[in-house]
Amino acid sequence: MMGRPVILIVDDEISNIEMIGAVLEDSYEVRFARSGEEALLQARATPPDLVLLDIVMPGMDGYELCRRLKQDEVLADVPVIFTTGLFKPEDEVRGFEAGAIDYVTKPIQPLVLQSRVRNHVELKRMRDQLADLAMTDALTGLGNRRLLEKLLPSEARRLARDGDWLSYLMLDIDFFKQFNDIYGHPKGDDCLRAVADQIRAAMRRSNDVGLRYGGEEFACILPKTDPPSALHVAESMRRQVEELAIPHSRSKISPFVTVSIGVASGRCIHGLSEELWITTADAMLYECKRTGRNQTAGHIIEPPRVESAFLRAERRVRGASG
């Protein structure tokens, strides 16, 4: 959670928004929406740290908005506090069943609101820290395979909304087993950390993600990156690792540590499995190793052609007449 936590206030009454905003604005970055539809768009564009949600609103009510937030993979962990004038126990139960974490009744008591918001924001911060640790490789500080399994599908779905590019890199340290055999595992760990540093250095955008895939293999997820740009990033990584000049007397291709990198780039479309990026990049990495190592190779993923209903009908007619 960087900077001040972001609180999204959702209420169709501007007077309620102003009052709640005045209570919280000294400690939080306050945003607001006056309908469920607007709130959903805002939250998906920039996920908040907590949502204060009115129940009774025209159109999409608070219960439905809360359910939709909890169904969204990116927003499911954002805590929702209902702010409402409804007092019946069944209303409260319905709110918790929709996914809310707490209830604050109107008229709002400023000290109660501040206390509830502070506690839930702090709990979310602690959960986020634990989640980060669970998805971080302890040796290199990069993401781990668990993060890859979570992030790659979500990025593919997100980019599919606009049919945008996604590139995926797989990097392998050449002859790393031999490196460990001659220099020992402590030096091997130093080598892994040094390579990880060069991966970080080659990625220039905040949404690019580097990961340790396992052993001496690394991966990178590059959203909105076309094939030439992805190959440029990969070549920068390869060159920067070579320029470290880490001695490797057992390498069959260089006196220094080198890497091979496979690149897969494709436009995301709904229904196209993210596994295609992994298998394609892996095939390109194998090609690098087969043809000499210390190089990069890339492939553009072509989406499967979808036959039109007209062509299918025409083929059936031709088949029947034959």
Rank of each mutant, 00 (worst) to 15 (best):
M1Q: 08
G3P: 12
V6D: 11
V6T: 14
I7A: 13
E13I: 06
S15L: 14
N16H: 12
N16Q: 15
G21M: 01
Y28C: 10
V30C: 14
R31C: 05
R31P: 06
E38C: 01
A39W: 00
L41Y: 12
L41H: 01
Q42Y: 14
Q42W: 11
L50Q: 03
V51T: 07
V51M: 00
L52A: 00
D54G: 13
D54T: 03
D54I: 10
D54E: 14
M60I: 12
D61I: 13
D61Y: 04
D61H: 11
D61R: 09
G62H: 05
E64S: 13
C66F: 04
C66P: 13
K70V: 13
D77G: 06
P79D: 03
P79W: 01
V80G: 08
T84K: 03
E90S: 13
V93D: 15
R94D: 04
R94F: 09
I101S: 09
D102V: 06
Q114L: 13
R116H: 02
R118Y: 01
H120S: 07
D128K: 06
D128S: 11
L130G: 08
A131V: 05
L133T: 02
L147C: 00
L152N: 14
R157I: 12
R161M: 12
D164S: 15
D164H: 06
M170L: 12
F176R: 09
Q178R: 15
D181W: 02
I182W: 06
Y183I: 15
P186F: 00
R193P: 00
R193H: 10
V195I: 13
Q198Y: 04
R204K: 15
S206M: 13
N207D: 15
D208G: 07
E216M: 05
F218A: 08
F218C: 01
K224R: 15
T225E: 11
T225H: 08
P227D: 04
H232T: 11
S236W: 06
R238S: 07
E242V: 00
A245N: 10
I246Q: 10
P247V: 05
P247R: 05
P247C: 07
S249F: 00
R250P: 01
R250N: 10
K252H: 08
I253W: 04
P255N: 10
T258A: 02
V259K: 11
G262R: 01
A264N: 04
S265A: 12
S265K: 08
R267C: 07
H270Y: 02
L272V: 06
E274T: 07
E274R: 04
L276D: 00
I278T: 13
Y286R: 00
E287L: 04
G292C: 04
G292Q: 11
T296A: 13
G298S: 07
H299N: 06
I300T: 13
P304S: 05
S308H: 09
A313F: 01
E314S: 06
R315V: 04
V317D: 10
S321I: 15
G322A: 09
